[in-house]
Design a protein around this nucleic acid. Structure first.
Length: 467
DNA sequence: CGACGGGACGC
DNA sequence: CGACGGGACGC
């Protein structure tokens, strides 16, 4: 179904990009000799030995078109500097400049070894390396981060040692990485318009990948110091490397309603120990505060560690335990989805209007299964639903809340300016379950049509966007 | 009826 | 130094 006949067009010579070689040889080197030496590297689509129009003599320049860039690159790497016939000079082999560019400058390895990829925001540079090392030796991996918060922007660079490795990665890696060759860095740094970057407060909560991942791996904070992972209390201990004032801790934890006590812990000499005790008048607030603020950077660069403290309350009765787990589960769901979150606190100046747990974000008569984790952002999409909203689209966060409950939700995409959207799933069954449960139903006053999406209109195979 | 996006690096 | 031809159309 992906087969497309080769459609001749003016620039098909460079499709895919960097699949054509430029050879400089002795004039005596023939097409046959070239074919003999280059066909081991892959499917040759065309060989053209440039000749003088009148004399028909070779100008010592040839073009070799491969089916794939990786083949062309490997041929270049292997053949550059080699002698292909007795008594001829070593040949030079470069990736040909695209016909459109008009430039005759040699294409350098520098431009062919670094790829640019979209990645889940939870990806570390190690994750990036793990993901791409199968394609070749990696020189380095860099993730683009917000310079002030250190938060990943979900974009990364991977530098390989050889052009063929980068080309193979681009050709074979999961397409959700949208791997392309990176533009060489320019000295002109006009790119970063992130003036209010640090002030902006829309990162985490509005980003599905972030919310999913941060809480998926967030467990590493939450459960990090294992000893406390199994008790849940109204009482929290806050630890910080940077010393905090009582006022700071108070302001932060008072964002969650129900705080009834907050005090810095002091050593016997009365010095601040960098720890604070916080207590809420209810379990739910404490759970919420712990989940939201543990691992939170405050001030930026300083991660808070928030853990439960045994407050001596009786948790022994089975009923008490169950109640506690129920509250905890509810609060976790809310935390996981809630629009309120650390971003509130990031508007550092104004601790004023904390939008606090507003529980019913989704109102519907449909019986919904419990919340489920999103699938990783780079999951293979196995099924897409097409959703029509009447009279107007629901917000993405609401849609995620609703559609994640059937499992393996990869992404919600709303078509801008229309009353329709797509829901992507990693498993077909989950998509079908969602469709069965939600088609024709009303959520937050919006009527939904939920159908299987038609396959995307596949234009010509134009996925090359090397610049 | 109601249909298909998105991306850039402190020297 | 070393850069761009030839072929050719269906429901």
């Amino acid at each position: 179904m992906e087969e497309y006949t080769f459609r001749p067009s003016t620039d098909s010579l460079d499709d895919p990009p960097n699949s054509r070689l430029f050879l400089v040889t002795s004039k005596s080197v023939s097409e046959e000799v070239i074919r003999e030496h280059f066909s081991p590297f892959g499917e040759i689509q065309d060989i053209w030995v440039v000749k003088d129009k009148q004399t028909k003599e070779s100008k010592g320049v040839s073009f070799v078109k491969f089916a794939k860039s990786s083949q062309a690159c490997r041929a270049m790497e292997e053949m550059h500097g080699k002698c292909v016939a007795e008594g001829t000079k070593p040949i030079k082999v470069f990736i040909a400049q695209s016909r459109a560019s008009g430039s005759h400058r040699d294409v350098e390895d520098e431009e062919l070894t670094r790829i640019f990829v979209m990645i889940p925001k939870s990806f570390t540079e190690e994750d990036l390396k793990e993901t791409f090392k199968g394609y070749g030796d990696i020189e380095y991996c860099i993730i683009i981060k917000n310079k002030t918060t250190g938060e990943s922007k979900g974009l990364g660079y991977v530098r390989f040692h050889k052009p063929s490795q980068a080309a193979t990665a681009i050709e074979n890696c999961d397409k959700t990485f949208r791997a392309i060759l990176a533009e060489p860095r320019t000295k002109n740094s006009s790119a970063d318009n992130d003036y209010f970057g640090s002030m902006r407060s829309d990162h985490m909560a509005s980003d599905p990948a972030m919310s999913a991942y941060s809480f998926a791996d967030g467990g590493s904070y939450a459960m990090g110091d294992g000893r406390c992972s199994d008790i849940i209390t109204r009482c929290l201990m806050v630890a910080s490397r940077a010393s905090l004032t009582q006022e700071q801790v108070y302001a932060l934890f008072d964002l969650i309603p129900g705080m009834e006590y907050c005090e810095m812990q002091r050593d016997p000499y009365g010095f601040n120990k960098g720890q604070a005790m916080v207590r809420y008048n209810n379990l739910g607030s404490a759970v919420y505060a712990k989940e939201k603020l543990n691992g939170f950077e405050f001030p930026p660069g300083n991660r808070l560690v928030v853990s439960y403290v045994d407050d001596g309350e009786d948790r022994s009765s089975p009923v008490g335990k169950m109640a506690m787990q129920l509250v905890a589960a509810q609060m976790m769901s809310m935390v996981w989805n809630g629009p309120a979150g650390p971003q509130l606190m990031k508007t550092s100046a104004g601790y004023s209007a904390p939008s606090v747990p507003q529980l019913p974000r989704v109102q519907t008569d449909v019986p919904l299964p419990p919340l489920r984790k999103l699938a990783p952002a780079d999951s293979r999409v196995k099924e897409r639903l097409f959703v029509v909203f009447n009279p107007a689209p629901l917000p993405v966060d609401v849609l995620e809340d609703v559609f994640c409950r059937f499992g393996s939700l990869v992404e919600v995409y709303l078509v801008p300016g229309r009353n329709v959207g797509y829901i992507k799933y990693g498993e077909r069954k989950n998509a079908n379950d969602a469709m069965a449960a939600l088609h024709g139903k009303v959520v937050n006053g919006v009527k939904l049509k939920v159908m299987l999406a038609d396959p995307p209109k596949e234009e010509s195979h134009k996925r090359q966007r090397t610049y």
